[in-house]
């Protein structure tokens, strides 16, 4: 039985902001995320399993993760909005 909520979302992680604390990875109910040790940040390795519970987004202490409904486009990149690189 597949969860109808599954696969409805896209996950964006800002690698520059993520500190790889592992909070999102540990508590993700669908095991979507993993820490990329080489890059030093979290990665959505099983995006299709995401049930859009929002835990990671609410709990990310660094505002580095965004879960977007599929079809809606955000600013597309891996940069947080409005950042002017200062």
């Amino acid at each position: 039985m597949t969860n109808p909520k599954k696969g409805q979302t896209r996950i964006t992680i800002y690698p520059d902001w993520c500190k790889a604390c592992g909070l999102c990875v540990a508590f993700c109910p669908a095991k979507v995320l993993e820490i990329d040790v080489a890059a030093g940040c979290a990665r959505a390795v099983r995006e299709q399993e995401c049930v859009n519970c929002g835990f990671c987004e609410l709990h990310c202490p660094d505002f580095a993760i965004v879960v977007t409904p599929r079809g809606k486009t955000r600013n597309g990149g891996t940069q947080p909005p409005q950042e002017n690189g200062n």
Partner: peptide, 16 residues
């Protein structure tokens, strides 16, 4: 959920 982070970024000082 996307609104959550988007919203927060509207309140952050991005020149910091």
């Amino acid at each position: 959920m996307a609104e959550v982070t988007q919203l927060i970024h509207e309140y952050l000082r991005h020149d910091k």
